[in-house]
């Protein structure tokens, strides 16, 4: 079976603090995995390792056929072009407008102009941002900013979607719209890894889940049972 990620005994230490301890995990291509656990359990660290932002302190990891814990600059660029990552701090381009923010990954991957416009406009319409396309990021509310980050990830042409608490600033209705969009993308073949502290969301999604507690998988490589 093709896999998007394969982790073998991955540990991540920040000084003397172990954020992740011996995590072994295989995420098949086209799968949907939820990662849950209370605050400080290591969900963000695990997602950052998957996204190439962090390197494991020990253990082995293979990311989208890219082997090795340490990635060279060019390999990291290649990985990032294949992974859409919704970070908790959103990482939006404050000097640009909504449209340019959503279009940024497509511009970087030299997507043809017409295709780019079509994809961006579809994503903006899906998250009701089409009327705010020309607005600067600084003038948006917290929820709108979060929707821009989600629209950017959805519009991008990547094989993997990583989402770290993507609905923290959204109300319940919007949260479900976002999860429905994730499920649709997953059905279209994209690998989705979602991190959320809200176990009720993870339960409702009815997808395989990994529970972390203080950096340790409660059921190693397996699924949470609720």
């Amino acid at each position: 079976m093709d896999y998007a990620y394969q982790l073998n005994q991955v540990t991540k230490n920040f000084g003397s603090f172990a954020a992740l301890k011996s995590v072994s995990l295989t995420i098949p291509v086209g799968s949907f995995l939820s990662i849950t656990g209370e605050s400080g359990a290591g969900k963000t660290t695990l997602l950052r390792i998957l996204g190439g932002d962090e390197e494991p302190s020990s253990g082995n990891i293979s990311r989208i056929s890219l082997n090795g814990n340490r990635l060279s600059s060019s390999t990291l660029q290649s990985l990032r072009k294949q992974v859409a990552f919704i970070r908790q701090d959103l990482r939006l381009l404050e000097n640009e407008n909504v449209f340019e923010n959503v279009a940024a990954p497509l511009r970087i991957s030299a997507c043809p102009s017409k295709t780019m416009r079509r994809r961006v406009e579809a994503a903006l319409a899906e998250f009701e941002l089409d009327k705010k396309a020309k607005m600067k990021i600084e003038s948006l509310s917290g929820g709108e900013r979060q929707r821009v980050a989600i629209a950017r990830a959805i519009a991008s042409n990547t094989s993997v979607l990583l989402a770290d608490e993507p609905t923290s600033s959204l109300d319940r209705d919007w949260s479900w719209k976002v999860f429905e969009a994730f499920i649709r993308l997953n059905r279209e073949g994209r690998t989705v890894v979602l991190a959320s502290h809200d176990q009720s969301i993870v339960q409702a999604l009815k997808k395989p889940a990994l529970c972390l507690k203080r950096g340790v998988p409660i059921d190693l490589g397996g699924l949470c049972t609720f």
């Binding site: 932002d53 660029q77 990552f85």
Partner: peptide, 18 residues
Amino acid sequence: EESRQLEILRELGATNWY
């Protein structure tokens, strides 16, 4: 001035030349 913007673009996969 644009270091934060550049950092974000790099996270989105931008190459050095870009």
